[in-house]
């Protein structure tokens, strides 16, 4: 087994996915515009973006399904699509939803996918398929024809296909699509378990809550371009925290905050001020929240409420990708 050790020698490289200047043009439409991606090994990488922002096209290029107009891709340290035959067996993928043979049972459909790879051992195929079905909780329906499957079951079967083998990298496009809340939780737990075992997971999603709970890194696409990429904390922190003081003495409060080096603004009896990048690793250039409260009390300001807010991922997402119907965006 090849474990996904980070920086596994010169062959491994530190990146599970490395894309440089990835571009795809369909006729006159630029679907993906010079995207640079660097997915560290062992990370759970969230790939965000509104519908039609080029996520799936990017994934297709990463997997060698579509040919980039420009730019290049390395998967697990090897150039794609040249290394397709050696790299893809180590990559599990769910691309734009599951696809099943309606006339085959789940078990037969998975066997066919497994047989498609000339490197897979036929002797252990049955066991591999059964295990993959077990992992996604489909054992009871393994011998049903797939046309009888519900959306959630189809999604699970798609995931089973991605898990047929020990993978170093999983590329999952909307893995929780169509799943009920229990199913979503199971998928999240499954991804977490895989990540704990060292599998790199590249997951695209609209579900920001899910990304927030799962991912160590995120990248955000907008209209074919990558607008942000980095550790999750960085994305959140880039928006900055802010402190809000509710008080009947707004002017006094504002001057105290100004005295602390902040730039307060007053509205409706609430004084707010940006606190700069947050997180527990506070760098000390801005006052800590507790010292703000202490200073306010010491100055005799009547504090009725004090709140430090961190922007939600959704706020940041919308800030980066624009409101849904924002034409100018």
């Amino acid at each position: 087994m090849t474990s996904a050790e980070p920086a596994a020698g010169p062959a491994g490289g530190a990146s599970a996915i490395l894309a440089r200047g990835l571009t795809k043009r369909f006729g006159r439409r630029l679907a993906v515009d010079s995207v640079d991606l660097d997915v560290p090994r062992g990370s759970v990488f969230g790939f965000l973006g509104p519908n039609g922002s080029g996520k799936t096209t990017t994934i297709r290029m990463l997997l060698g399904l579509a040919r980039p107009t420009a730019g290049q891709v390395e998967l697990l340290g090897e150039r794609m699509p040249r290394a397709t035959a050696t790299v893809l067996p180590r990559v599990g993928a769910l691309v734009e939803g599951p696809a099943l043979y309606p006339f085959l049972t789940a078990r037969d459909g998975l066997s066919r996918l497994d047989a498609a790879d000339p490197r897979s051992v036929s002797r252990t195929r049955g066991a591999r398929v059964a295990e993959a079905l077990e992992r996604v909780g489909l054992t009871h329906a393994a011998d049903k024809k797939a046309h009888a499957y519900s959306l959630g079951m189809r999604q699970r079967l798609g995931l089973a296909g991605a898990l047929l083998r020990e993978r170093e990298l999983l590329v999952l496009d909307e893995p929780s699509n169509g799943l009920d809340p229990q199913g979503t939780r199971e998928v999240r737990a499954l991804i977490r378990r895989l990540a704990d075992d060292g599998t790199t997971v590249f997951v695209s999603s609209h579900l920001l809550g899910e990304v927030e709970q799962l991912c160590s890194h995120v990248a955000v696409m907008r209209a074919g371009r990558l607008v942000m990429s980095g550790p999750l904390g960085e994305l959140r922190a880039a928006g900055g925290r802010s402190a809000a003081v509710r008080t009947p003495d707004p002017d006094a409060a504002a001057s105290v905050l100004a005295g602390l080096g902040l730039r307060p603004s007053v509205a409706d009896g609430v004084v707010t001020a940006d606190l700069g990048p947050g997180g527990d690793a506070h760098d000390g250039t801005e006052p800590a929240p507790e010292s703000i409260v202490a200073a306010l009390v010491a100055a005799g300001v009547r504090v009725r409420g004090f709140e430090v807010t961190t922007p939600s991922l959704e706020d940041r997402f919308v800030a980066l990708t624009g409101e849904g119907f924002d034409v100018a965006g």
Binding site: T84, L88, A116, D117
Partner: peptide, 14 residues
């Protein structure tokens, strides 16, 4: 049309 072509190719069938 079934979409299975993409999964055969990432299997990878070649």
């Amino acid at each position: 049309a079934l979409g299975t072509l993409r999964y055969l190719l990432v299997a990878p069938a070649g």
